[in-house]
Design a protein around this nucleic acid. Structure first.
Lengths: 215, 215
DNA sequence: TTTCGTATTGACCATATGGTCAGGATGCGA
DNA sequence: TCGCATCCTGACCATATGGTCAATACGAAA
């Protein structure tokens, strides 16, 4: 993405590209602002400034603040769902859950703003993505629960309640994004280094895999 | 607390009590509204309505919205710190961490709004409680890390990084409050029953205690 | 060069909201 | 009964903000 962004920045590209490029610019700025200020605290003016565009221009691409917000949340949800693939096609919990933890930790690191927006949305009662929770997320959850149950039946792990295992996976991995500021404060005010991210991922993986009796 | 509240409600009490009672009323309403709408989305009018008082009355007790918010966050932080006692005086991880998980799960159940306000505050970069993070929380964390390290040295648990174990404890327990709406949605839209809360607590305890090699 | 759909933007508006204030009610102690 | 500190509150204000709009620029196709 940085590559294509640079290319399109050098050569403005054809007329058709402008829309796509500006929407990207606005969405990135919006994600950050919504994460840092919340929906209510975010202002279109601030998002506009951060995107380097006049405010009226935002309304040209996104009619209302809520439309913009909705798009941001949807983006995140899709990224989030992609990590699902790590879960699939795994022979057992060590491989499947291990890969899932790694994928989710990676998302926490690369999309901390998105994770926060998602968390805030859910905390506020999911006013704009309730339907996703009830359809896509519910299906996804039931599917993985079945996989976990199969692993249990095959004796590959202890008889843990699959539901609470999933919650624990979500909680621990997303914590590193959502509470990143707290973690940073407790780390001498410095962001985690590459090595520290690796340690964190390993710790989470270790405790959980051992905790479910897969090791 | 419910006891004293009822007493003061039946008999309005002496003049001096009025302040305390109204502040309580306002703080409870504020906690809920801040949790559900965020700081920016919350309005003094809505808090006033929920507390059953005229808006101007809020400003009599709490000069500004930020003052009110600050008090709400402080309240939560104190409740949160009280759970620390569960950790202390424990002979080993099974007892200490077990009690801590139970205490924190109980807080998640009894103070879901407070937990959300805290989470949002941290996600926004802790604008009003940064000093707490750097002083009280940092000290608390270092103290518990030392305790955990001692348990490790005594061979009572596997050599897990104490820091990441603490993060996992916070993440998993608070998840049941902060993402309560999501959990409820995945539970047929119904809040967890007593039995389900017990299951959740047991699952968390089981996985973590086993995960750190304490069982 | 002309045309036309797309993109841009400064100026403007209606509304919501945090906060103020002056006047009044209340009730306790003297 | 009186005085005083505390508490209450409707009306009001300044400001910030989401959103609109008309005028304009732009660039590709004809």
């Amino acid at each position: 993405m940085p590559g294509t962004a640079r290319i399109s920045r050098i050569r403005p590209g054809r007329r058709t590209d402008i829309r796509q490029q500006n929407e990207r610019l606005i969405l990135d700025a919006a994600e950050r602002v919504f994460a840092e200020a919340g929906f209510g605290g975010a202002t279109m003016q601030l998002i506009a400034d951060m995107a380097g565009l006049p405010k009226a221009n935002l309304h040209y691409y996104f009619p209302t603040k809520e439309d913009l917000y909705r798009r941001v949340v949807q983006n995140i949800f899709e990224i989030w769902l992609d990590a699902a693939s790590s879960f699939d096609g795994a022979a057992g919990p060590v491989e499947g859950i291990g890969a899932y933890v790694e994928a989710k930790m990676d998302i926490s690191r690369r999309h901390p703003h998105g994770s926060k927006v998602w968390a805030a949305e859910v905390m506020h009662g999911a006013p704009v993505i309730q339907d996703y929770l009830e359809t896509t997320l519910r299906q996804w959850t039931e599917g993985r629960m079945a996989v976990i149950q199969r692993w249990i039946d095959e004796g590959q792990m202890a008889p843990i309640d699959p539901r609470h295992l999933l919650y624990m996976l979500w909680a621990t991995t997303q914590h590193y994004a959502d509470f990143g500021h707290q973690i940073e404060t407790l780390n001498q005010g410095r962001p985690l280094t590459d090595a520290q991210w690796r340690e964190a991922t390993e710790s989470v993986k270790q405790i959980i895999l051992r905790g479910i009796g897969a090791i």
